[in-house]
């Protein structure tokens, strides 16, 4: 039987694999380091707040020291004579993922990471699932809020270097003349149907939203949800409305311009039903 043969092939293919002897050490070290880095970051932000220093946007968005951009910052501390002496500012490797690699309970799910969702189609609830990889994070919504249910709408946010990868993906679609440019309020987007491995579907309509130099968002509809929306026009309309309402919450000037709700009446409608439902 094919199934038995598959088992044999898979066994042959994986026979050479062995877990590294230092795997346990690496896991424990990494887990502890994440906790430490997070604690350090909180301390740095608190200290910066005390001395009135603004941490450059680039620092809060970059995935590591190599990605740091923005003006050089300095922590000012008094020397022995009492005068202020600028000290080199050592940026922590930020942002770090949350300790659990997800965001925990997000309520209606509309505020996650460093963004806020202003509009969702009717009938959707937060799926109770999220992932946080630090410079990229995501959550989704579906009909029943079931953690194990299929998603209807999923939003990925990518920051710093991760955002650059997202831009490269858009450029790749552009190069192939796959998809189309979109205007989202005063921001730009790119609408394309991606093939992201959805079994049996016709692809995943996606709106790439440029949220500033350090941030990109991908708003995706599952093929199941696309069917329910019915028409291509409805799909595009809803994608654009979500994109218009998606804003940053961390003060990044390139991403906080609150776009008006599409059709002018969705804010109220959305407020009545959590997560658009």
């Amino acid at each position: 039987m094919l199934e038995d043969d598959l088992r044999q092939i898979m066994a042959d293919e994986t026979a050479r694999l062995r877990a590294a002897p230092d795997l346990v050490d690496r896991v424990i070290r990494s887990s502890r380091r994440r906790r430490t880095v997070r604690t350090r970051y909180v301390a740095v932000v608190a200290a910066a707040a005390v001395v009135g220093i603004t941490i450059p946007t680039g620092l809060t968005l970059a995935s590591g020291p190599a990605a740091v951009s923005g003006p050089a910052a300095a922590v000012v501390s008094p020397d022995t004579t009492g005068s202020a002496v600028p000290q080199p500012f050592e940026p922590p490797p930020l942002p770090t993922p949350s300790p659990t690699l997800d965001f925990g309970d997000l309520g209606d799910g509309k505020a996650f990471g460093r963004v806020k969702v202003g509009y969702l189609p009717d009938g959707l609830q937060w799926s109770h699932r999220s992932s946080d990889w630090g410079d990229a994070y995501t959550t989704s919504w579906n009909y029943d809020g079931d953690k194990n249910g299929f998603y209807c709408v999923q939003i990925f946010v990518q920051e710093g270097q991760a955002a650059q990868r997202s831009r490269e993906a858009v450029q790749s679609y552009r190069d192939k003349s796959d998809g189309e440019e979109a205007t989202i309020g005063d921001r730009t987007g790119y609408l394309v149907t991606q093939w992201v491995g959805e079994d049996g579907g016709k692809g995943t309509p996606t709106m790439f939203l440029d949220m500033g130099p350090e941030r990109m968002a991908e708003i995706m509809f599952s093929p199941v949800f696309v069917k329910d929306l019915g028409t291509r026009e409805a799909v595009e309309r809803e994608l654009k409305k979500i994109a218009e309402g998606l804003t940053a919450t961390d003060g990044d000037p390139g991403t906080t311009s609150e776009a008006p709700a599409a059709d002018g009446g969705d804010e109220g409608k959305d407020a009545e039903a959590p997560a658009g439902g």
């Binding site: 877990a19 795997l23 690496r26 896991v27 424990i28 990494s30 887990s31 994440r34 300790p99 659990t100 690699l101």
Partner: peptide
């Protein structure tokens, strides 16, 4: 993938 999964498991 394995390290990520084990880290999550370790924390819980």
């Amino acid at each position: 993938l394995l390290q990520t999964a084990l880290e999550r498991t370790y924390r819980k």
